[in-house]
Design a binder for these strands. Structure first.
Lengths: 256, 256
DNA sequence: AAGTGGTCTAGACCACTAT
DNA sequence: TAGTGGTCTAGACCACTTT
């Protein structure tokens, strides 16, 4: 059935990548079924005329991708698909910012506020300490799609304030080109329905279901720097992913 | 500031893991800031008395984790955090099945139905071909939490039917121990609100926002075998994740 | 004892970038 | 030209599992 492939030493593709793709194809074609053992690493060295380190590297990549698992002294085994390994990216969400240039960020409000109890708690400051409130509307093809509300710690000595004030500051976060003052973030996704005010801003019917993406970002001193939420119309967003051997990779093979 | 660590050759932890943790800590502490260059691989070999392959392996892990990026001929650089790299696991969702043993699956209905247009389309069969409808209610601590509705291709020659009919068949999918006849799956997450019937089943108020997790699973011949949706009360589910250097890993270090 | 995965070495050679 | 990352070798030694 599947024609036997060798590793092409003249290819621009590294040997370990070629080996990953060969093994992946053998799993995808059903030649190696879930639960079955792969040839031992020594056998793969022999068969494909590569060194143990090269085989090992290929196997490690297959482990990373959840296709196989190894057991010392026993062998390498094909894994059945498993829902608990599934991950969803924010591609569909961040794509709104980056894909087309047809995305506009409209600054609705920038204001200094006295923090209430919740703001103080999230930003680890004292109640009635000052914070900066920023409200933005993100438009996709001139249609309001995401409403963003964010509180920033007000501290002139901390550089993040300057950067975040700009309307385009969001862009860096999404593309990884901008903000370097943030060390880490915590994110959560919930479902909600739009209240009247939110629906108004998003030109949507009230009670429309929506995604709520909450975020807290911390600086390198582990102090909260920003707390806020993105509110995204549920009818304009849908997160998708695959588990197991996605059919797309059959053509393109994996990238380095 | 940060005390200088060496690699402990007597440790049970491999050298490359120790090196990953050392570099990770240096990034987390701000010793290496986003945009800055790390010491060259040759320097790291010298400094930590390990071979180039070991350094390379550590760097590759840091790349995987999104902490650094490399540029041939230029060096290795600390990456700023980036929202487009964020991934959400289904841990909070699958945890309902696996965490406690206090989860029950109640089979509401198993019935053979003639497929309508939508079912036929999803399962790649002809309209009015037979399909198996399974409806389940998943209870967490005796509270109905998830409603699952699934259509299976009806084909006695295909083994999946047998396996899926069992009430506990879901368990394997979540833990990766069970079904070996499935090659891949496509998943999507949407928001919705419960209609009256769904609310009734979940003992929830109608119009409650909810997550809708749709799935199609394919067999090794790339034919759809199952199409269905999980409906999960929005007030009982919240997906969380982190970006950048999560504070938890500081204590535990990374696993192998 | 034999076979398996897991780590590690001390180099080699290549491609690319900066100077 | 010198420095950087990237791949690869041909072994070695170890820990573990199976027979």
């Amino acid at each position: 059935m599947g024609k036997i492939r060798d590793i092409d030493r003249s290819s621009f593709e590294p040997a370990y990548i070629q080996l990953v793709n060969i093994l992946r194809d053998q799993i995808a074609s059903g030649e190696f079924r879930p639960g079955q053992r792969l040839p031992s690493e020594a056998q793969l060295c022999q068969r494909y005329q590569v060194s143990p380190m090269t085989v090992r590297r290929a196997i490690n990549i297959l482990i990373d991708r959840g296709l196989v698992s190894t057991a010392q002294g026993r062998g390498t085994f094909v894994k059945p698909i498993e829902l608990s390994t599934v991950v969803f990216g924010l591609d569909e969400f961040t794509g709104i910012f980056t894909k087309n240039a047809d995305t506009k960020v409209r600054l609705l409000e920038v204001r200094i506020v006295k923090s209430d109890e919740e703001i103080a708690k999230r930003l680890a400051i004292d109640v009635s300490d000052r914070a900066i409130l920023i409200r933005r509307l993100i438009l996709k093809e001139n249609e309001p799609t995401i409403y963003h509300k964010e509180y920033l710690v007000y501290d002139p000595t901390r550089p993040i304030v300057e950067g975040e004030m700009e309307v385009t500051a969001l862009y860096g976060l999404f593309t990884g080109t901008g903000e370097t003052a943030l060390k880490r973030g915590e994110l959560a996704i919930e479902v909600t329905v739009l209240d009247e005010k939110e629906a108004n801003l998003l030109k949507a019917p009230p009670m429309l279901p929506a995604f709520r993406l909450e975020h807290i970002f911390y600086d390198f001193d582990d102090r909260p720097a920003s707390w806020g939420t993105f509110l995204c119309r549920g009818d304009r967003l849908r997160f998708t992913t695959t588990v197991g051997l996605s059919v797309n990779t059959d053509e393109k093979d994996i990238r380095i």
